[in-house]
Nucleic acid binder design. Structure first.
Length: 309
DNA sequence: AAGGACTCCAACCGCTTGAAT
DNA sequence: GATTCAAGCGGTTGGAGTCCT
């Protein structure tokens, strides 16, 4: 037999969390640390399943979470990363440590997707004459939320929507603040809280650079088939030392999954670039790229955002 | 002022992966 | 090796708040 169930489903409470429940959960985690969620409902008396407790913690109560409006910089990074990684919200969130994947996903679905769609409508003509500027918009990750082609938008179209925080959000924020002292004394730093640590000496963007070069070679916006992009990402995971299936991380195998010229390029990446990657500077290539003035200007241009660098 | 439409986001659902037994 | 479940993830939903007519 396998493990015992985390909790019986009978009598499990659903719906919004109350401040009292939050305090109970936070107090428990403050004492025992996050993890072993199976024991949380039992030990706290909360009528929530372990999954609900974990989600509440990771998406709302965890210290260091920034709430409220996204800055233009964050917005630009999300657009960049979404274009590169697709709807890999957890991966995107790892580059925005103060934001949760849920937040980013919601922000994308409620703000950015619409903005891009709006920006794109009626302006496709202009795009046709300028294919490289918008290459970052053209990825091939599964279904795209927005069309790969887009163009300039007026700043009025793209003005940030001002949102006010709810009273309860503020109280939850206060709960989080209570934990700041505990956070500082805790030796554990998760990748979520410290993505740079995970990226140190690694090169997510060696493949991204490859991707950019590749798109540059296209005459217009090019949609890369999802399997190909996945291959690149898997390869990238391998070089990053991230957990991944050994066989799927085999460089040669990855290369062989892509045919023709693509295979050649991936082989180039695998065999020619890898030794170089192992001696990378601490700041990852991706971070450099994300902070790259030129690249970010592209985002700003499309989104009508003010210059942030 | 009313109520219908729209927006936003916390929370849930369902799937996949990997660990525990 | 098979089974079971925890953890993690992306997609979706429900409902409270806001906007519009």
């Amino acid at each position: 037999m396998g493990r015992p169930p985390c909790c019986d489903k009978v009598g499990i409470k659903k719906g919004p969390w109350t401040p009292e429940e939050d305090i109970i959960l936070v107090s428990y985690i403050q004492e025992h640390g996050p993890g072993n969620w199976r024991l949380v409902p039992t030990n706290t008396g909360l009528l929530r399943c372990s999954k609900s407790c974990r989600l509440r913690w990771t998406n709302y109560l965890r210290p260091g979470i920034k709430r409220g409006n996204f800055t233009p910089h964050e917005e630009g990074m999300i657009i960049h990363l979404q274009a590169l990684l697709g709807n890999k919200w957890a991966a995107i969130a790892s580059y925005l440590p103060q934001r949760t994947d849920n937040d980013i996903k919601n922000y994308w679905n409620t703000h950015l997707k619409k903005k891009i769609k709006k920006a794109q409508s009626g302006l496709d003509t202009q795009l046709a004459s300028d294919s490289t500027t918008y290459r970052f918009m053209s990825t091939g990750c599964n279904e795209r939320d927005v069309d790969s082609s887009t163009s300039h938008a007026s700043s009025s179209d793209l003005r940030l929507i001002e949102n006010s925080n709810s009273i309860y959000a503020s109280s939850a924020e206060n709960i989080s603040r209570l934990l700041e002292g505990w956070m500082k004394s805790s030796p554990k730093i998760s990748p979520q809280n410290n993505p740079t640590a995970e990226c140190e000496g690694t090169t997510t963007a060696e493949s991204l650079h490859f991707y950019r070069l590749r798109v540059d070679q296209q005459e217009g916006s090019k949609v890369i088939p999802s399997d190909e992009f996945e291959s690149i990402l898997s390869f990238d995971q391998n070089i990053n030392g991230l957990p991944c299936d050994k066989s799927s991380c085999d460089s040669s195998q990855k290369g062989s999954e892509i045919s023709g010229n693509d295979e050649e390029k991936v082989n180039f990446m695998v065999h020619e670039q890898k030794p170089k990657m192992e001696n990378n500077p601490p700041l990852s290539f991706l971070e450099n790229w994300l902070l790259d003035e030129t690249a970010n200007h592209e985002v700003e241009e499309v989104m009508g955002l003010p210059s942030i660098f």
